[in-house]
Design a protein around this nucleic acid. Structure first.
Length: 192
DNA sequence: GCCAACGTTGGC
DNA sequence: GCCAACGTTGGC
């Protein structure tokens, strides 16, 4: 069956789960648990096997797309939703009424260098990208094929001129967040 | 630390 | 069903 590949982007805080953590995971695969936003969930439900997913580091230095993953399992219930000890516990969720889903993502590529947000903003072909919209908060979002290809191209043209590597100074360095607690997806690796 | 954006909650 | 208050995300 001819099938169209779709493209997506997921955000993660690298302090919580980085692309290096993904690389170190068994089979370089993780379940993308902890998503608790209906629109983000619905995008995950639309993901098909083989779809490609850009991997973005938020709340990080640098803010950047750092690689590409692929969907290796389509949406299925996220058991962390009814785990009362989980940070993202939802009292309304249960095995009979999971409410929240996750997909499995496998690492395909770590870019030779992170592709920073400020470089993305300079690229006219990405002007309409959801990630770059002011105030965009969605942690799972669709990406067009053209945007995906532009990003791959930029990521591989990057090598020679990594100009955008900002010096970390006292003024721009992020303070450690108050309680260094995990935020967004915990991505506890549930596979054994 | 600030604050814009926007989802969620709950009183009515 | 409206909408103000509140909470969270996440860049700056």
């Amino acid at each position: 069956m001819p099938k169209f590949k779709s493209y997506w982007l997921v955000k993660t805080e690298p302090d919580c789960f980085s692309i290096q953590d993904l690389a170190a995971s068994p089979r370089k695969t993780t379940c993308w648990d902890g998503v608790r936003n209906y629109l983000a969930r619905n995008y995950m439900r639309a993901m098909q096997l083989g779809d490609e997913v850009l991997f973005y580091h938020s709340n990080a230095d640098p803010l950047a797309i750092v690689g590409v993953t692929a969907v290796v399992r389509q949406a299925y219930p996220d058991p962390t939703a009814w785990d009362s000890t989980n940070d993202h516990h939802d009292a309304k969720a249960s095995p009979d009424n999971p409410i929240w889903d996750m997909v499995d993502l496998r690492l395909e590529e770590i870019f030779p260098a992170p592709l920073p947000l400020d470089r993305l903003r300079e690229e006219p072909r990405l002007a309409k990208m959801e990630l770059l919209r002011r105030g965009s908060r969605l942690s799972v979002q669709p990406v067009t094929e053209a945007e995906f290809q532009t990003i791959e191209e930029m990521a591989h043209a990057e090598k020679a001129a990594p100009a955008a590597k900002k010096q970390s100074t006292a003024s721009n360095r992020k303070k450690p967040r108050a309680p260094a607690v995990k935020k967004k997806p915990t991505h506890t690796n549930l596979k054994r």
